[in-house]
Amino acid sequence: MFVEIKNDFGEMDMLSSKISDFCREQNISDEKHNNIALIVDELVTNVMSYAYPDGGEHTFSLKIEKCDNRVCMCLTDGGIPFNPLSLPNPDLESSLDERPVGGLGISLVRQLSEAVEYARVDDKNQLSIKVLI
């Protein structure tokens, strides 16, 4: 499945129903569906929030396919160079007072994925994510 997404949070409903359709067609369990939806949500939210500081309208894309016992996703945007994997992992042991608000999304993505890789290809950010199902 290939989806083009505008940098507008109004697209999130469309995206989540496309992910639901894909998971239903591929007989993916509810639990794995939730994990895939969460990974896509966190990464797409990052792109919408930070990739296009000019504020103009842009389109980026998500490819998602099932290969054997994995779902492979590729998120590609032409925004400013940014590798979300360069962010430090939040300290998950720190106390309530010390815990920074934010930075949790990419940590969830790492934990839910078998592998996440970033590359800058042809002036685009490309994230490849593999999830065991």
């Binding site: 969460l38 966190e42 939210t45 815990r99 608000v101 949790l104 999304g105």
Partner: peptide
């Protein structure tokens, strides 16, 4: 369904 955006609000 809950994402990190919701976690952030609960933490705050």
């Amino acid at each position: 369904y809950m994402s990190s955006a919701g976690l952030r609000v609960v933490l705050m």
